[in-house]
Amino acid sequence: MSEGITSVITPYKVEVVQGNVVTREMLARIHPGSSRTDVRDALGSPLLADPFHADRWDYVFTIKRQGTEPQKRSVVIWFDGDSVKSIDAPELPSEDEFVASITRQRAEPLPERKLMLTDEERAALPVPKAPEPTEAQPQGAKRSYPPLENP
């Protein structure tokens, strides 16, 4: 049985990115006792700040990207008044690990591209021929134009 065109063409899937990326380096900037302003400066605005639970900020991140594994992480910051009481977070990736995890892997590496010729390769190129003179060489404009200034 022939495979047909559907085996060659894959449908486009929309990349879905939601929430705040929180990395290990970002989370290291806050600790119990940090203010809400410090948390907002380090992590950005929370995805969920519920007025009925004013002591809790949720930073949720999800990404679904074709060619990579889907990711979902949730960081919860608990407050006591204006200062951080505790932090509930999974093992977070470093910034480099996060970038590597969302980078699509190629099946085959790209071939190395040569940008310049060596002196030996340049010398081996054929020398272009000089153009042969022709009898009908252009001799400037054939029309005469009036002068631009009045005499």
Rank of each mutant, 00 (worst) to 15 (best):
M1T: 00
S2E: 03
G4F: 00
S7D: 14
S7Q: 14
S7T: 15
T10Y: 09
P11A: 09
Y12C: 07
Y12A: 02
K13I: 15
K13V: 13
K13S: 11
V17A: 09
Q18S: 11
V21T: 11
V22P: 00
T23Y: 03
R24S: 10
I30C: 11
G44Q: 10
S45E: 12
P46R: 00
P46W: 00
L47A: 12
L48T: 13
L48E: 13
A49E: 10
P51M: 00
F52D: 12
A54H: 06
D55G: 01
W57I: 06
V60F: 08
F61L: 06
Q66F: 07
G67T: 01
E69W: 09
E69L: 14
P70D: 14
Q71L: 12
S74R: 15
V75Q: 08
V75D: 01
I77Y: 08
G81C: 13
D82E: 08
S83K: 13
S86F: 11
S86W: 09
D88L: 01
D88K: 08
D88A: 12
P90H: 03
D96H: 02
D96V: 03
F98W: 12
A100T: 09
A100M: 08
I102K: 01
I102A: 10
T103N: 04
Q105H: 06
R106T: 01
E108K: 15
E108G: 10
P109Q: 10
L110W: 05
P111D: 00
L115R: 15
L115N: 11
M116A: 12
E120Y: 00
E120L: 04
E121I: 04
A123R: 07
A124I: 06
A124N: 03
L125N: 08
L125F: 02
P126N: 05
P126W: 05
A130D: 05
T134F: 00
A141Q: 02
R143T: 12
Y145Q: 10
Y145G: 06
L148D: 13
N150A: 12
